[in-house]
Design a protein around this nucleic acid. Sequence first.
DNA 1: CCTACTTATCGAAACGTTTCGATGCTCCTT
DNA 2: AAGGAGCATCGAAACGTTTCGATAAGTAGG
Lengths: 344, 344
Amino acid sequence: MATIRDVAHLAQVSVSTVSLVLRQPHRVSPETREKVEKAVQELQYQPNGIARDLRVRKTNTIAVLLHNLSGPFYSELIRGVEEAGENLGFTTLAAGSSKSQDQGSLRLLHEGRVDGAIVLDPTISSPVLLRYARKTLPIVVLDRGLSGTLQSDFITAVGSDHESGGYLAGKHLLTQGYRRFALIAGPVDSEHSHLREVGFFRALQEEPIDVTTIPVVHGDFTEIGGVRAMTMLLDHEWSFDAIFCANDEMAIGAMQVLEERHVTIPEQVAIMGFDDIRLARYVNPSLSTIHQPMYELGISAMKQLSRALQGKTLIPGEMLPVKLIARTSTQKRTTKVGEEPNVS
Amino acid sequence: MATIRDVAHLAQVSVSTVSLVLRQPHRVSPETREKVEKAVQELQYQPNGIARDLRVRKTNTIAVLLHNLSGPFYSELIRGVEEAGENLGFTTLAAGSSKSQDQGSLRLLHEGRVDGAIVLDPTISSPVLLRYARKTLPIVVLDRGLSGTLQSDFITAVGSDHESGGYLAGKHLLTQGYRRFALIAGPVDSEHSHLREVGFFRALQEEPIDVTTIPVVHGDFTEIGGVRAMTMLLDHEWSFDAIFCANDEMAIGAMQVLEERHVTIPEQVAIMGFDDIRLARYVNPSLSTIHQPMYELGISAMKQLSRALQGKTLIPGEMLPVKLIARTSTQKRTTKVGEEPNVS
DNA sequence: CCTACTTATCGAAACGTTTCGATGCTCCTT
DNA sequence: AAGGAGCATCGAAACGTTTCGATAAGTAGG
């Protein structure tokens, strides 16, 4: 690889002049500029970004840390980050996180290879993030909780309004005429699941419905977890006419069990998910759910980061609105189904 | 941020000694080692990766270039790359590619920020890649063609065996008893689609079946493209009892049209896709397809890269076997359907 | 014609590491 | 006791840029 020195030599000028031509062409006379440009061409010179970064102490790069790059769930979100980043002049890197700290994505942070980070990986603990965050490395956590209070001025969260989502789900099921509910929640320690549950119950209580009689079983956010949860619910002969699942994956698992047991959806039981993953539209019946504004979340996160890098103060914790997506799994009950819609 | 100089100062040793402690601890006496380690702790010293990279002219980082990070299709593949990379001591970065060349992912390549690249993005042209590839920056293209002959020793391809995939699909439909075929291909310039088609026809000719009478319509690999293609096929009143689609997305689009028109699958028409995307298992009826070994492809690509970086020569063009996934969309025809399975 | 200002170019320092060869020491061998 | 080997430590150069202050040359004003 040719260096700036080689170019300078070939063009018979100093190294600094070459640099000047590259960065502020107007400051150099047309003749020398041309000489230099010719040399650059001839040598196919490409400035070394690493050297540049070292010198200017800035990389114009931000990292997106994912649990694994596998999540189809996050694709829209990343697209938002990337697009906003491009407009703002940043290169976006995505990295999955590996177990060891000295390798993989965390290396990007502590070795100063990026100017900022957007963290989606729930397996990276808040204390760890807190340790890395600093003026020259602001961090935005996205779609995940930030357990404990945040001491740092250089870290913030953006996410969607899970509580409202739960509320929307509850309201929807109520207006559709359902009255006897069951809940398949996420892991107990999932803040998101908890918020969705809280919102859901808030809606029911407005009716009012006695929420203490509603069975709640905790799944693990996976399809198979949904299968297990639903099986349990059914085996214990709980009665209900609508199920709210804390995410779509579990809802889909639950639907499979219902189908096997010849329980019709939505006639006998309505089912509602959360997230609006792609699959939701395609399962049979199509799954009603709550849509999170993934793309907008990405944009928003990137903007926050950019603000922070300009030295502005971070906005503490942004929350974006979600949207109800009504599909057939919660279609209004036909009156012919002979069950009284009574409370509890 | 503390630098190595600060550490040296605090520990009362030279800079080089600190470096030695960090890289080859055994070469320094226990006493000084301890002094240095204490200073490192106290200052929370983290070596600057950029400076290190500049000095040693190596980044231990490889880039995965995607068209957009959105592809759920590629998640398994990236997982393979990442895992293999981790074992080999590389950090993996994924980057979507943007339009401008000076920004985004290509910057990683020409500015020397990575030691190698795995390219999945079909929008990056082969000449461009050819220009970047060199001894110190080997490139592996994955799951995409490499148009034209390859002059470079530093670039290679790994992909799956699309021709065999097509063949497998053809064979499968034949053994299931189908005899009158139609084809929904990809874009005309898609090498993959072409290979799949070739393989498919090879299978049919073994029967033998006169392939010249088989209608082929070109889609664009999208769901909506599948809808259009299927509509066309139906409107022109072609008769067929099985359709091979060059990918699952289009197959799913096609299925929607069939359902609307009350054509039953697989009784009246069987349908077969390619790729085995997640959705394939969930559509109704579930879609028979050809599975590509995405994870293995990722592993393989990473290994190639690692070989190249060790100065070994690249293996020219690896091709991994695919697998038939038979589901209900091609279920064996029941004999009661009164159509003679005649040739042509 | 001298001074003051502007413009074009340059040299050198700096960014934070790693690594090579040099410098002392200590200890062993003969 | 002299010489050599081996070890611990160090100084300095190098990686490839950018940028600051200096210098030289040219221009304008009085």
